[in-house]
Write a protein that binds this DNA or RNA. Structure first.
Length: 108
DNA sequence: TGTATGACCAACA
DNA sequence: CTGTTGGCCATAC
């Protein structure tokens, strides 16, 4: 759980990642669903950039007619990310960390 | 013990 | 593009 939060905390402004990728980086392959749960549980005091996590199809996972959907879209746009109908171009905005340097920062 | 439900995913038709 | 399938796992009833 902390591992997931830590990875999400590293997401740079203007980049996004998917639940599955976050799970992989956290050393929990195949646990995408667990990531969504971890974000829901995360204390607000952590100020995690949760909005930078979308699904593997490059879309916001909330239903389009919800508040959560709108706030996530707004936060992404504030980051400078283009969002069209809940869709984000992974080709342009996916976070591709350098694994070598990334590993050095992990506390686990 | 069983079933249903998620801020999921990859493969396939 | 959409929909389905099987896999995943914690929670809730």
């Amino acid at each position: 759980m902390e591992k997931i939060w830590f990875i999400v905390a590293m997401l740079p402004k203007g980049r996004v990642s998917s639940y599955g990728k976050v799970a992989d980086l956290a050393g929990l392959p195949g646990m995408a669903r667990y990531v969504s749960k971890a974000l829901k549980m995360a204390p607000g005091t952590l100020n995690l950039p949760w909005h930078r996590v979308i699904n593997s199809q490059g879309k916001i996972s909330f239903k389009p007619d919800t508040e959560a959907f709108r706030t996530q879209m707004q936060l992404l746009r504030l980051d400078g990310v283009e969002v069209n109908r809940g869709r984000i171009s992974l080709a342009k905005f996916e976070w591709r960390p350098d694994m070598a340097t990334l590993v050095l920062q992990l506390p686990f």
